[in-house]
Every structure is written in structure tokens, then in C-alpha cells.
Simulated scan of single mutants.
Amino acid sequence: MASEDSPNWISAILRWPLLWHAARLLLVSAYLLGGLTKLLDFAVAAAEQAHFGLHPGWLWAATAIVVELGGSLLVVLNRFVWLGAGGLGILTFVAMLTANAFWTMGGHEKFMATNAFFEHLGLIAGLVIVSIVSDEPSSDPSRAARSQAVQGVSQ
């Protein structure tokens, strides 16, 4: 579905099959890296969670690893994207409230935390958008074919 506002060459780029896969991978890349980093140094991950007041730290670290890796995998594979992106969004929201509580800070620290808070808010919006787009039958060629077959039978 091309937009009348987009030049033809932009529409052509946006229809490249690999672009959708690459965009999903890039969207969750920080979560993949974070999950792997936590998994490879679990003691540090647990201490980080405790530092932000999330106790017990080991439980929050384990939860973060499962959500970051599992949620990312669901988004990348374009399966149950609502679940994967939803989990990542909730994890991001908790992180925003604990690590980027800019309303409790002052000076440069407040500036940096405010910026990070709203960057994370934008990331949550991206996760919502990927869930919306993934819910469209056209986002998955096999699902689009099944949808067309069902529509043909029902007519």
C-alpha cells in the first residue's frame, strides 16, 4: 500500500522484503545485547537490579533476561509479536521509572535522565507500532495467503 505522499522510489524501498525483517531486528537489538550481557555476567546483572531498588536482584535479572531474549525472538520471528513487544514495553517502562526518574534529580543528571526517559518512551511507541503492523495479514506472506483463502471461502 503506497502512500500518495511518498515518491515512487521511497515506496519501492519501503516494500523491500528484507527491510521489514531488518527493522524488527534493529528495533530489538538493544534488548538482545542487554539480555546476552546479563546472561553472561549474571552476578553483575543482579547487582544492577538491586542498585535500582528491584529486590531480589537475581529474580529481576532473570526476568529481564527472559523478557529481553524471549520477547526479542518473538518480534524478530514475527510470531506473537504483541506478546514479545508487550513484554519488552513493560520491561522498558519499569526501567524508565527506576533508572530514569528525572523528577528526583537535578542539574546535568536530570538532563541526561530526562533525555533517556523520553527516548525509552519512543522505543515503547515503536514496539506498539510493530505490534500493530504485525497484526496486519500483509505483514506475513503466509498469513496473507491464508487470509485470502479464508476470504475466498467465505464469499
Rank of each mutant, 00 (worst) to 15 (best):
A2M: 09
A2N: 15
E4H: 07
E4P: 07
D5F: 13
S6V: 03
S6D: 15
W9I: 12
I10P: 02
S11H: 11
S11G: 06
S11L: 02
S11I: 02
I13W: 09
I13S: 12
I13H: 04
L14H: 08
W16S: 13
P17H: 11
L18K: 04
W20K: 11
W20H: 11
W20F: 03
H21K: 13
H21A: 05
A22Q: 07
A22W: 08
L25C: 15
L26Y: 14
L26D: 15
L26H: 05
L26V: 15
L27I: 10
L27N: 07
V28N: 01
V28I: 15
S29L: 07
A30Q: 14
A30M: 10
A30F: 04
Y31R: 00
L32G: 12
G34L: 08
G35Q: 00
G35R: 01
L36A: 03
L36N: 07
K38P: 04
K38G: 06
D41T: 04
D41S: 13
F42S: 08
A45R: 01
A46R: 02
A46P: 10
A47I: 06
A47R: 11
E48T: 15
Q49C: 11
H51T: 12
H51R: 15
G53A: 05
P56H: 03
P56E: 09
G57E: 10
W58T: 08
W58Y: 12
L59K: 10
A61P: 03
A61Q: 13
I65D: 00
V66K: 00
V66I: 15
E68T: 01
E68V: 01
L69G: 00
L69F: 00
G70T: 00
G71W: 00
S72I: 00
S72Y: 00
L73R: 01
V75T: 07
V76N: 03
N78C: 14
R79K: 15
R79N: 04
V81A: 09
W82G: 12
W82Y: 13
L83Q: 01
G84Y: 00
A85K: 01
G87C: 05
G89Q: 15
G89H: 08
L91S: 11
T92Q: 02
F93H: 06
V94M: 07
A95P: 04
A95C: 05
A95M: 12
M96Y: 05
T98L: 07
A99C: 06
N100D: 11
A101Y: 10
W103G: 14
T104L: 14
G106M: 03
G107H: 10
G107E: 07
H108Y: 09
F111L: 12
M112L: 03
M112Y: 12
T114F: 12
T114E: 14
F117A: 08
E119M: 15
G122Q: 06
L123I: 09
L127R: 05
L127S: 10
V130D: 03
V133R: 10
S134G: 14
D135S: 12
E136N: 08
E136S: 09
S138H: 13
S138Q: 04
S142T: 05
R146F: 07
R146Y: 06
S147P: 01
S147W: 14
Q148F: 11
Q151G: 02
V153F: 02
S154T: 08
Q155W: 09
Q155A: 12
Q155I: 11
